[in-house]
Write a protein that binds this DNA or RNA. Structure first.
Length: 799
RNA sequence: GCCGGGGUGGUGGAAUGGCAUACACGUCGGUCUCAAAAACCGAUGAGGGUAACCUCGUGAGGGUUCAACUCCCUCCCUCGGCACCA
């Protein structure tokens, strides 16, 4: 009988669904294992990236299940978002209809892959019974003062016609449509993620099993920087100009001060001065430049003198105030003290504009004492000079002493600066969670009361594709009554960023139908945290940071008992073709469905895991998939020639394989686990196997090729599902070899091998080695200087 | 510039101080066949040698060690992240 993958796969997919084989339930008698893969945006079809992500998760889930864990392995859809809306505008359909069709298609394709999801727990974020809890959590945050509305310069994508969070702007471009993001002054909703910045940074050290680069990316994003805020004074008005620096040790070398062009003080300083016009012209010019151009390092830094002076509080020196494009309003206080001798940017700027310089830290490697000799700024450590009472100290000591001295004299204060900004979450789009807020002419901003949730998204709206939220066109939605005073009021028409939806979905999976709250605390106590999370690196900052923030918030209001939602994280590599990411625009997509039709899901699963370790990039290889298919056929044929009894050598190979595969699966080294199984199959082809050995091979292969193995398992006479059977264990007794091969080196080079009984004494072994004929030419009559023996492995003779 | 990952046969990749290149793809040869495919068996880092074997070989150079792909130092290349961050 041939291996008919089509028939087998359909048969078992039906059977598993009928038996609800993968239905999870909290079972306090067993250890739990929550395995989660990042849920997809329902774009229609699954692609190879999904297949890889979900296959990695599926193998781990099935393996844990067979090891006796109570496994939670759910799947759902991150269903709100702009593509649905764009598609609706294009096809004159409704975003909901488009989304539900895509979900149905994707679900069907996932089922064809044989993933072991508990489909009874499926969630969709676009359904009211999900998003009402978005609104509920949002209002809880509002209650705790973590939600606020303010007018600010925000990121605006002209193509998507909506605002974007800082995290959604990559290289100055929209993360989704890649068009250039501009700055707009708008009133928007923000979430105070910065309230948890210390925890978000500090708890990174708890995430011992997260990839190093993800931790680094989050750390960079949070961007903690410790320094001092120093209070300079504007000479004429006496107005204070705070300046942030991490190099307070160089304060005596400050020879000018620079304000960002947007700094509010600039206009005051220049008023009535001869420089006024020139400065205004400069500010206008900088304002027109895009952020990307301004930030590119090869563009020359420009600036103008304001005509004003600032007084340095440490020595009462008056230094010129400049305006320059290299100082950013968004960071620190938008003003810097410039120390050209010890900061390279200041150095270049000072040279260009012939500004004065003063050395205040001696470079121990060079004898330069006059600033004119410098070719670049010295940013390293050294001894303080020209620094009044701090002369002679090392700059590291001076840093501490100067900070203390400034605080005492109230001319400065130790400050911590962060790169992290609050999270802008309002979007001027339709297909998202309505923000549950009401504007009342009498009462102002009024939150929607709990009992009125959910604020449902109205179905009938106009999609013009041009400006403003489509919700504005839904009169019945917009017009409402104030919950407080009952007078006529207006609903907020912005919706939430979809990252809000995905920041807590892993909690919803624990009790997807719970109606009294976002989740059942008891269920969450059992299942959370997620033991293993698997997904793409593109969420290293966005989704993973927001989810961590949510968990910290929900813990603080007493709903959770843990700090970090994801215990272990695996970021899988991308799937490439001819060295490039598969993409529509490059036209190099391999459709998983076509591969399933040709070779079956089991071959696809096997190939995608065998071709590379999960974390590295994977080059798609059409011959590789054939290899996987051939391997399954090779295993299939073993059933035709089973022997009565396996040879003892094969039993040893089997136990060695069990040990290797079990270990490799635990470490997510799927490629070497499969290689181990291939070796076992090769050994079976050499000596023939009995039913016992073959059964164990089938069990070990089953997480990778589940339908295939389930069928063989049944053919072997088993009634119960293979996934209910116990994972094989190896017998260490059998692994103890009777004889061992000792590699013999002379001066570190392999020259001979001998096989000896495992219990040979060291003395006996040494004697055997010294009389080895093969070594004669290498030793000759040179005296033996050293003899190193690694038990049961190797000997090295040094002559 | 700073931070992180990586560099091993024709190809994907194994080996984290102890036989470099497991496993697979590809290529070559054999068995079976009228023939082909499939299947099965075998060879396959480079150079030298009839052969047994020998020499070289994990981005480059140096070091530690009886022994280095593996640890340390310097450098090169490459991928990713952050960046006028004061």
């Amino acid at each position: 009988m041939d291996y008919n993958f089509k028939k087998i796969e359909e048969k078992w997919q039906k059977e598993w669904a009928r038996k609800k084989l993968f239905g999870a339930s909290a079972d306090s008698a067993r250890k739990k294992y929550y395995l989660l893969e990042m849920f997809p945006y329902p774009s229609g079809k699954i692609h190879m990236g999904h297949v890889r992500n979900y296959t990695i998760g599926d193998v781990a889930a099935r393996f844990k299940m067979m090891q006796g864990f109570s496994v939670l392995h759910p799947m759902g859809f991150d269903a709100f978002g702009q593509p649905a809306e764009n598609a609706a505008i294009k096809n004159q359909s409704h975003p909901a209809a488009w989304t539900h069709r895509c979900i149905a298609e994707m679900r069907a394709e996932m089922k064809k892959m044989g993933f072991s999801y508990d489909w009874g727990r499926e969630i969709s974020t676009c359904l009211p019974d999900y998003y009402r809890w978005n609104q509920w959590i949002f209002l809880k945050m509002y209650e705790k003062g973590l939600v606020y509305k303010k007018e600010a310069l925000v990121n605006w994508c002209p193509d998507c016609e909506t605002t974007l969070a800082n995290e959604e702007v990559i290289d100055g471009k929209c993360w989704r449509c890649k068009s250039e993001v501009i700055q707009k002054d708008l009133e928007q909703w923000f979430i105070k993620t910065t309230a948890y910045k210390e925890k978000l940074l500090g708890d990174l050290s708890r995430l011992k099993s997260w990839p190093e680069r993800v931790l680094t990316m989050q750390k960079n994003w949070l961007g903690k920087s410790e320094g001092v805020e120093i209070y300079f004074k504007e000479k004429e008005s006496g107005e204070i100009i705070p300046v942030f620096t991490t190099r307070q040790d160089t304060i005596f070398g400050a020879t000018y001060l620079v304000l960002a062009p947007e700094h509010p003080l600039v206009k005051k300083v220049i008023r009535g001065k001869s420089q006024e016009k020139e400065v205004l012209r400069f500010i206008e010019k900088v304002g027109k430049e895009s952020k990307i151009v301004r930030a590119s390092s090869d563009v020359k830094k420009e600036g103008v003198f304001t005509g004003g002076y600032a007084v340095n509080p440490v020595n009462q020196e008056a230094i010129p105030i400049w305006v320059a494009d290299y100082v950013l309003m968004e960071y620190g206080s938008g003003a810097i003290m410039a120390v050209p001798t010890h900061d390279q940017r200041d150095f270049l700027f000072a040279k260009e504009h012939q500004l004065p310089m003063r050395i205040v830290i001696e470079n121990p490697q060079s004898r330069i004492s006059s600033p004119g000799e410098l070719t670049e700024a010295y940013e390293g450590d050294g001894v303080q000079v020209n620094s009044a009472q701090f002369d002679g100290l090392s700059n590291q000591e001076a840093k501490i002493k100067i900070a203390e001295w400034m605080e005492k004299g109230a001319i400065g204060k130790r400050t911590v600066n962060w790169r992290l900004r609050d999270w802008l979450i309002s979007r001027q789009r339709y297909w998202g969670t309505p923000i549950p807020m009401i504007y009342c002419p009498q009462c102002g901003i009024v939150p929607v009361p709990d009992k009125d949730l959910p604020v449902e998204l109205p179905e009938k709206v106009k999609f013009s594709g041009r400006g403003g939220s489509p919700l504005l066109s839904a009169k019945n939605f917009v017009e409402t009554k104030c919950p407080k005073c009952k007078s006529k009021a207006r609903r907020e028409t912005d919706t939430m960023a979809t990252f809000f939806d995905s920041s807590w979905y892993f909690l919803r999976f624990c009790s997807p139908k719970f109606a009294q709250g976002p989740f059942d605390k008891e269920e969450v106590r059992y299942w959370m945290p997620v033991d293993q999370y698997i997904g793409g690196i593109e969420h290293a900052v966005l989704h993973l940071l927001y989810s961590r923030f949510f968990s910290k918030f929900l813990k603080e209001i007493g709903l959770l008992s843990f700090e970090e939602p994801f215990e272990k994280l695996l970021t899988q590599g991308m799937v490439l073709k001819e060295g490039k990411v598969m993409s529509k625009s490059l036209g190099n997509i391999v459709d998983p469905d076509s591969i399933v039709k040709k070779y079956g899901a089991d071959s696809l699963r096997l190939f995608i895991l065998f071709a590379a370790p999960p974390e590295t990039e994977l080059e798609w290889d059409s011959r590789g998939i054939e290899g996987a298919f051939k391997f399954l056929n090779r295993v299939w044929r073993i059933q035709d020639s089973l022997k009565e009894k396996s040879a003892p050598d094969l039993i040893r190979v089997l136990h060695r394989t069990i040990k290797k595969v079990t270990g490799d699966l635990g470490d997510f080294k799927f490629n070497t686990a499969i290689a181990g199984l291939m070796e076992l199959v090769n050994a079976i082809y050499q000596s023939g196997a009995d039913k016992e050995v073959f059964s164990k091979l089938v069990i070990m292969l089953s997480p990778f090729a589940p339908h295939f193995c389930e069928e063989l398992w049944q053919i072997l006479g088993n009634k119960e599902s293979i996934f209910k059977s116990a994972w094989p264990e190896f017998d260490p007794q059998i692994l103890v070899e009777e004889s061992v091969t000792i590699v013999i080196q002379v001066n570190g080079k392999m020259r001979s091998k001998i096989e000896v009984p495992a219990d040979t004494s060291d003395e006996k072994l040494k004697e055997l080695i010294l009389h080895d004929e093969k070594l004669k030419p290498w030793i000759q009559d040179k005296p033996l200087k050293n003899f190193i023996l690694v038990p049961k492995k190797l000997a090295n003779l040094v002559v």
